[in-house]
Amino acid sequence: MAIDNIPTRRAFLGDVFRVLGAGGMCCAGLWLTLRAGSGPQGQSPQTSAGGKSPAAEPLQPLPRRPGSYVWQIDPDRCVACDGCQKYCVLDVSAVKAVQCFALCGYCDVCTGYFPTQGYVLETGAENHLCPTGAINRRFVERHGDERFFEYTIDEQKCIGCGKCVAGCRLMNGSLYLQVRHDRCVNCNECAIAVACPAQAFRRVPATEPYLLGKNMKTAIAALERRRQAAGGAST
């Protein structure tokens, strides 16, 4: 009888142990979730937010969300090297140049469009800074002798090399690189983040998946105020 009972008792104890173990793992997971985002900011690209930089705004602890996190480039830290083009696991990088129209000067002599040395203001392909001709230059209007042009990025052609971004930085800095989430496969460890010399990549909540530079925020706020004023005037 006792012999018959031994396996049963062992099995029962084993079951208790397993259920407790599974429950313990779940509790540990719950604890981790609840603790998440409570400590001071880490310093590495692997943590939710990158290191401090005097130029960047103080980083807020990320809110706890059930959602996921995605990679994004902090434009204030980005140095516009060509790493995004080279290191993305996709054949054509998920990083593309983006135009912040509110900050753009609509320049005639656009240093993001023309090469910085010996530029000729002709739109022939040989005069383009962009290696794939992904920037469209469109005439907007003329004030006296001064012409204004709109520059838009053709994302189908853009390879994310950042040449235009580096060029535009010389002037207004309205072009910036961003991870485009319709293309990004959201690797657990972003290959570009590993290679990024400026540690400009960080995880951001998927609900707010794009970042702006400090100047861009100010310029967009100014544009919004202008629009609101115009909207208020028209009604």
Binding site: G29, T33, S38, A49, G67, S68
Partner: peptide
């Protein structure tokens, strides 16, 4: 790193 906000989905 307590500042890393791990999504519950990943824990699951």
């Amino acid at each position: 790193d307590p500042s890393y906000a791990i999504p519950p989905l990943v824990i699951a």
